[in-house]
Amino acid sequence: MARRVNLLGAAVFVLALVLWELLVRTSVLDFTYLPAPTAVGEGLGELLANGELLGALGHTLFAALSGWALAGLVGVAAGSVLGLVRPVWTYSMASLEALRALPIVAFVPVAVLLFGFSVQTEIMVAFYAALWPIMLNTISGMRTEPRMLESGAVLRLSKAAVLWKIRLPGATAMIVVGLRLGLSVSLVLTLVAEMVGNPAGLGFLLVEKGQALQPGQMFAAVFVIGVTGIVLNGLVMGAARLAFRGQMASSGEAA
């Protein structure tokens, strides 16, 4: 299916911005600290000019991506073991489900307690947040279609070959979904850790600008965070399509 440019949608988006601008200018929307889109644009310019934005973005990305990458390694490894070795699954899944019920944000204060106001806190929080979706998706991805395994058996594939050629590729699409979910939650949780823990990065920038009563710059930071999320997600998808062309295409993920 060819993807056409959604002109109507873009027009509505722009129109909404114009409306917002007008409502603020005419004081119909009367909040003391609600900036108009133009003020947000100015704020973005200021943040870019004084270099604050790029520094903060770099810090947040470093923390979120480190935690996420760590979670990717641990999550895929643990998820594979849990998905492939039945006794391990039987004797630990309920514990994992009990732990998963703990709302992840509630862990942020614990991490601050353990690791102090440091970048380690951020990385640990990002790691913990991303671990769950990655591990759980890997587990369900390892539930291979039994007929595929039988096909491997009748063609007399070795155990290693079945794992490498059938099980793992079969799980790839699910693992990528886990990685994408994991990346977005680790970004969110890194921001939270920066707001309440380590005073650095985009999360702290938001809080700081709020306290300094600079709504324009603050909204600009929110905008940048939103765009960062979209870009990161796109990068993961693009990389996955490049590396695992067949797997992604067969799961309907091809563009």
Binding site: M148, S151, A153, V154
Partner: peptide, 22 residues
């Protein structure tokens, strides 16, 4: 176990082929 030189062809081809391979 499946003997050498004996291959089964299943009815549900969709689940027997690996969708990520050409």
């Amino acid at each position: 176990g499946p003997p050498e030189g004996v291959v089964t062809v299943f009815q549900d081809y969709a689940h027997s082929l690996l969708p990520w391979r050409t």
